[in-house]
Design a protein around this nucleic acid. Structure first.
Length: 406
RNA sequence: GGAGAGGUGUCUGAGUGGUCGAAAGAGCACGCCUGGAAAGUGUGUAUACGCCAAAAGUGUAUCGAGGGUUCGAAUCCCUCCCUCUCCGCCA
């Protein structure tokens, strides 16, 4: 947890102490309940055989037990609630390969791939290209909703659909079966995947109906398996799905979030797996490879980062970020994040499987973006700009049905 | 949103105050039977937490959720959630 830069080590001792107390209390309560149950059975027996007097005699004792068990029950509930409250504040333990560090600069570059695009001398950033070719209207989005909600038009809109379909098809080829899920979830789902309570302020919340707009398809898709006990042969579960994602991104403004770099609403294809604990790191590499294959097919220069403890999300044990090189902005843009949550989510979800001994055991959950659209669009536009217009990558042409944006 | 009906184990479905963690059937698992299978037949078949080094065992809780009545609740009462039928609205 020190690797993860966790600030409250004393919380761990508190949790251990609370659990100790919880067990003691349950023990007491069980004993009292046991006595009361025995007495109730005895009374039943006596009543049936007509020995009313004896029954009445035993009844006299029950008041005491009732009082005691009520008190103990309340204590136990309070302890469990307190324990739970503290427990959900503990982040996941990082995998041993996670580098120490606090800032994104301390992330480890695992590999870089692809060629550096050669741009014409007058190369433009994507927000200017979007205006030049009439692909995206940011101002119109501001009018009808607000900043960070762009309106895609013409070939810009078609490019969205093309990318979504391309990503879904690729995911299905890789064995993921598609699901189409609700865009709003209840609080229980938010807790299940760890967005609550950690990221409460980052989600849009619909108060009248007590629902949250999903920040990622990870939430509804993974929660499909909440309170589920899978058979061993049902693993691995592989799902993919496209959804819009909604993020408040409270407090982030400025030049580095211009254009498509950071949005309140964007489209994403997500891949999710539920796997046997022995397989999860192997699967994580596989998911990383899948995401990389997409970037390769789109002809984008990218790099893979192993996130350092401080930059990793609350629930993750190991995260790879994929970034594409934006030639016109001269910077790397994060387009995917694939993580192994080990049992962090499954513990909250009560997502288990029956192991070889026939016992229930927590499964491991993983997910990753494959891929998020806006920054892919940004780098595609920027890196593929020519004097004649913007060239669509070959792999995408069957989906766009056009080769050039001009 | 209005009126009514209902929520029981993997499923169907009994169960209106004690002997009910819950009949029966199906499914599933294992065994017998068989050349092999089907049929037949026998046994088993929830989850969580606690005690125990662990297995075995055992205690407690759970019949949509929470609370109440009672010595004792699947069963009675209250609140909430959900499902179904009819009406309303509607892509």
């Amino acid at each position: 947890m020190a690797v993860k830069n966790f600030k409250q080590p004393e919380l761990v001792d508190e949790v251990i102490g609370l659990d100790e107390k919880r067990r003691q209390t349950q023990n007491l309560l069980d004993t009292v309940s046991s006595q009361a149950n025995a007495a109730a059975r005895q009374i039943g027996e006596l009543m049936r055989t007509g020995k009313k007097d004896e029954a009445e005699a035993i009844k006299a004792n029950t008041g005491k037990w009732k009082e005691e068990s009520k008190q103990l029950g309340e204590q136990l509930a309070a302890l469990e609630a307190e324990l739970q409250d503290k427990l959900v504040l503990l982040p996941n333990l990082p995998h041993s390969s996670v580098p120490k560090g606090i800032t994104p600069e301390e992330n480890e570059v695992v590999l870089e791939n692809g060629s550096i695009p050669e741009l014409p001398a007058n190369a433009l950033p994507h927000w200017e290209l979007a205006a030049k070719y009439n692909l995206i209207d940011f101002e119109l989005g501001v009018k009808i909703t607000g900043a960070g909600f762009p309106v895609y038009k013409n070939k810009g809109a078609k490019l969205q659909r093309a990318l979504i379909n391309f990503f879904i098809d690729e995911a299905e080829k890789a064995g993921y079966s598609e699901v189409s899920v609700p865009l709003m979830v209840n609080a229980a789902s938010g807790f299940g995947t760890g967005q609550l309570p950690d990221k409460e302020g980052q989600m849009y919340y619909v108060g009248v109906d007590d629902l949250y707009l999903i920040p990622t398809a990870e939430v509804p898709i993974t929660n499909l398996y909440r309170d589920v006990i899978l058979k061993a042969d049902e693993l691995p579960v592989k799902n993919c799905g496209h959804t819009p994602c909604f993020r408040r991104e409270a407090g982030s403004y400025g030049a580095h979030v211009r254009g498509l770099n950071r949005l309140h609403q964007f489209d994403k294809v997500e891949i999710v797996q539920v796997v046997h604990p022995d397989k999860s790191y192997e699967v994580l590499e596989g998911m990383s490879a899948h995401v990389q294959s997409l970037l390769q097919k789109l002809g984008l220069r990218y790099r893979v980062l192993r996130l350092c403890g401080g930059d990793m999300s609350f629930g993750s044990a190991l995260t790879y970020d994929m970034e594409t090189w934006s030639a016109a902005q001269q910077r790397w843009l994060e387009v995917s994040s694939v993580s192994n949550f080990e049992t962090f989510q499954s513990n909250r979800l009560k997502l288990r499987f029956r192991n070889a001994e026939g016992k229930t055991q927590l499964a491991h959950t993983l997910n990753g973006s494959a891929l998020a659209l806006p920054r892919i669009v940004a780098t595609l536009l920027e890196n593929n700009q020519t004097d004649k217009g913007i060239k669509i990558p070959e792999a995408l042409v069957p989906y766009t049905k056009f080769e050039w944006i001009d």
